[in-house]
Amino acid sequence: MKILVCISNVPDTTAKISFSDGDTKFNKSGVQFICGPYDDYALSRAVELKEEHGGTVTVLNVGEADADPVIRKCLAIGADDAIRVDAEPSDSYFVAQQIAHIAQQEKYDLILMGRESLDFNSGVVHGLVGEMLGIPAVSPVMHLTIAGNTASLTREIEGGKQEIEATLPLVLGCQEPIAEWKIPSMRGIVSARTKPLKVVAPTGEALSTVEKYALPPAKGAVKMIPVEQVESLVDLLRNEAKVL
């Protein structure tokens, strides 16, 4: 089985978000970058499927050279090789186009990625890629097993879940608990240094551009209610906050 895992290089979940250059650029200084947590789940499941069924796992990132440490970590976790499309991942359509372009050259049985990236949270790249390739895309997938040409999967929907059967090839957006996150072993880290990481030029253009960033307005001070007067909260919510 040939699996492509698309990963994003994103600020750590605890990173303080700020902008520079007149609020037109993300301020990377002092920010730790990680493989998107949802992408990490996708990669872990891909490595498990390879162990179970044989085959290869290729990691794909659309990003600049500063994404290489995160790509190497994915190789250390168990991917066989990696491709980096050398470009800023400027919008969902642009990223999807790169993935579809590569998938058209190499036929993959499964294209896995996180349900959304942790920076722009668009959650549409899997859907765009599926449409571009003319194959089904399903998200967010919580369980995935493969038997022959058939995938059995569970995805989350509002207030519950759906069990779905589908035929490969497929594009899937993944989330927990599809697999346990894997920590790279010492052997994995050493072998990752020599695994192939191919850098390729991008194709096509983005359809949207960010003009400006902004932070949310600061929250006002909290109004503390003494525990003896718990009941007064109801009145405050009704008449002051007007939410009841």
């Binding site: 919008d91 359509y93 549409v124 449409e131 359809l207």
Partner: peptide, 21 residues
């Protein structure tokens, strides 16, 4: 879940710019 999936497909079919959230 359905809305975003449909939006992505339609955007790809029409080569349309897509903004979520």
């Amino acid at each position: 879940v359905l809305g975003d999936a449909v939006a992505a497909s339609v955007a790809a079919k029409h080569k349309a710019a897509l903004a979520t959230n």
